[in-house]
Computed example of a mutant assay.
Amino acid sequence: MKILYFGDADWGAAALRELVRRGHDLLGVVLRKNPTDGELEATARQLDLPIFQPQRCNDPEFLATIRSLSPELNLSVSYDQILRPPILETAPLGFVNFHAGMLPWYRGRSVINWAIINGETQIGLTAHFVDEGIDTGDIILQKSLPVTWTDTYAEVMERMIASFPGLVVDTVELLASGHFDRRPQAHLPGSYFPQRGPGDEWIDWNDTSSNIYNKIRGITTPGPGARTFLDGQPMILWRASYDLSWPKYQATPGQVVGIESSGVRVKTGDSTLILNLVELPEDSQGPRLPRFKIGTRFGINLHEHILQLQQQILELRCIEKTS
């Protein structure tokens, strides 16, 4: 089958290699305007495939290029431009996208992070036709992968990257056979998630241990890591541990209440969790086992902060009166 391939990143590269290995005719690779890394481009060059990188994929010049190639099917694996007609009509079999979420749930961006943050026990991969909505097209195939209580972002990502090529090839071969079902999802409400960005990584110690634990493991490496404050300076939280059976009680959230061989135990809004690996600002040691005194407090003491601001305002007013 003649395929034009739109994509990015390591899972895009892995699926491309598998398609070529299985004998499909790749007409070329369309890169993002700003690729997340160079792996897909390097793979395309190794395979001696034409490379395209349009600023806008719906530009007339690029549409003319697609039509000259005459693809039977267009594929999207981690491509970031919103696809609209007429590009959706440039291949007889349509445009198929591969989404790292079990549609109709987890439409949108950064869904691996959000699935872990939400404490999901499984995560989906979906092959679906692209329509004029966002992740709303008819479903072709889906695959479910487990997410354990201790899995981190890196571990779930690795599992998904390993599974993506198989889903891509199975979908292409199903479409080539002509015997496939289209499962509409337009009538389903689903859920939408934005791209995770700066500001999402801060920990609120008044939240539950479960929520904080999921957030830490959901944005750890290769993500930016969760953040808290220590003495007014940001600190990265790379790894934590929590057991649902630990007792729940009231105390000061964000305060170290115990020192253990695996790290420090910190009070949360309902229970405790253990910080196992942290990184202090400008620390040449990099990530390390935390060793803080009992009573050390993380985060911002809002009451104290407000009092300091009020004092600063009073001092400024006094300066104005005397000037």
Score class of each variant (00 low, 15 high):
L93D: 14
F129W: 08
L237G: 01
D231H: 09
Y153I: 10
R183I: 08
R182V: 07
I313R: 15
N214Y: 09
S261I: 10
A251C: 00
H303Q: 15
G299N: 12
L69W: 00
L230K: 04
E304L: 13
L244P: 13
D170A: 15
N214W: 05
N74S: 14
E39T: 14
I112H: 04
I66L: 05
T228Y: 11
F62Q: 07
R67D: 13
P146G: 13
R107G: 15
R288Q: 15
R32T: 12
F98V: 05
G225P: 10
V77H: 05
A186E: 13
I116D: 01
S78P: 06
I300W: 03
P71D: 07
P253H: 01
N113R: 12
R182I: 06
S76Q: 08
N118D: 12
G124E: 10
L277N: 02
G7Y: 07
R32L: 14
T150L: 08
S191C: 04
L174R: 09
G299Q: 11
L273D: 04
R317K: 14
L49D: 04
A15D: 05
H305V: 02
P287C: 04
L73D: 04
S323I: 14
S163T: 09
L88G: 08
G190V: 08
R183L: 10
R22D: 04
S68N: 09
I134E: 06
D200P: 02
K215D: 02
T150D: 11
R109K: 12
K267Q: 13
S144L: 12
L47N: 08
N206Y: 13
F52N: 03
I140G: 00
I236H: 07
S163G: 06
L26D: 01
A154C: 00
P92M: 05
D131R: 03
G12Y: 12
I87A: 13
K267G: 01
D135P: 06
A9M: 07
F164I: 15
Q46D: 14
A15R: 09
G225I: 08
T221R: 14
N206F: 12
H303T: 15
S110E: 07
L273K: 08
P247T: 07
D270H: 03
L73T: 03
T322L: 12
I112D: 03
G254C: 07
W149A: 12
S110Q: 12
